[in-house]
């Protein structure tokens, strides 16, 4: 039986797909057989970030409609063992994502995989509801700004009322706060909320803080999950988040403004 993890946010563009790619790669690198499923029907982003867009033949909707078998649609990742991608369809509309269809596919995946990571679309409509319905755990992807925090709060309410675990009165979904695009400089200037503010409002455990990092865009342009870019700050922070997800303790990094290097201290300084 797989553990189903939804990466969700309410608000768009906060880093769900980046996170789904990184976490699934991280889990696979730890030896867990992992599949990452793109629920963003009509947009199809995940396969780009994972660098497999040219290898997409069949997709999630084809499998739901019985036009292809699961094993025909699953794409094996080229760089990471144990990792598979189930891409979304670019051509269909999201109504093709039926509750029965999603249930059927996730049940089948559950038998083969240790982890199923669901990359949710933005919003609180059908696609997002489908992505979170079966979840055992939820990664609440949040940027340190008021509107994103508000939307995350709303999604948490939906997890509590519209998920399978809520409907069937099972043990509640395990919720994790993942702060992404955290810019310590802007936090220090009060242009963004700090970690404490967000934790205080959302009142769920913090899984990690991913710093704002230009490597993220570079990586996604090359079709490499950022966790695979050596020495990138965002990648290291995702590494830590995966460890915490697996129960390891490790201190938070990248929360403070980086100290100035020796040259900046000697020649730059604040004048």
């Amino acid at each position: 039986m797989a553990r189903i993890i939804v990466v969700t946010s309410g608000k768009g563009g906060v880093g769900k797909t980046t996170t789904s790619a990184a976490l699934s790669t991280g889990l696979a690198r730890h030896g867990y057989k992992t599949v990452v499923v793109d629920f963003d029907i009509g947009l199809r982003n995940l396969d780009l970030v994972m660098g497999c867009e040219r290898r997409v033949v069949y997709d999630f909707i084809n499998v739901i409609n019985g036009e292809a078998g699961l094993n025909q649609a699953l794409i094996k990742d080229k760089n990471t063992d144990n990792l598979f991608i189930l891409p979304a369809s670019q051509t269909r509309d999201k109504d093709a994502l039926t509750p029965e269809g999603v249930d059927k596919v996730l049940t089948a995946l559950s038998e083969e995989f240790d982890y199923i990571v669901c990359d949710s679309p933005a919003g609180i409509e059908r696609g997002a509801l489908m992505a979170l319905y079966h979840a055992d755990e939820a990664i609440i992807t949040t940027n340190p700004e008021v509107s994103s925090v508000r939307d995350s709060d709303r999604i948490l309410g939906i997890l509590h009322s519209k998920s399978k675990r809520a409907e069937q009165n099972l043990e509640p979904i395990r919720e994790h706060l993942l702060l992404t695009r955290y810019d310590a400089n802007r936090v220090a200037r009060d242009e963004m909320l700090d970690v404490k503010d967000v934790e205080d409002i959302l009142a769920i455990p913090l899984l990690g803080v991913i710093p704002e990092d230009t490597d993220v865009l570079k990586a996604s342009n090359q079709g490499i999950p950022v966790i695979n870019i050596p020495e990138s700050n965002a990648g290291l922070a995702y590494d830590d988040a995966v460890k915490r997800l697996l129960g390891e303790q490790c201190p938070m990094r990248f929360l403070d403004v980086p100290r100035k290097g020796i040259f900046q201290r000697l020649f730059g300084g604040q004048s």
């Binding site: 709060d153 709303r154 948490l156 309410g157 939906i158 009322s161 009142a203």
Partner: peptide, 21 residues
């Protein structure tokens, strides 16, 4: 959470935050 509504006939005791919305 935001968007949720709790109604109770009687007294209501809440030990967790009530969000904006």
């Amino acid at each position: 959470r935001s968007g949720q509504q709790i109604y109770h006939n009687g007294d209501l005791i809440i030990t967790a935050p009530v969000s904006v919305g």
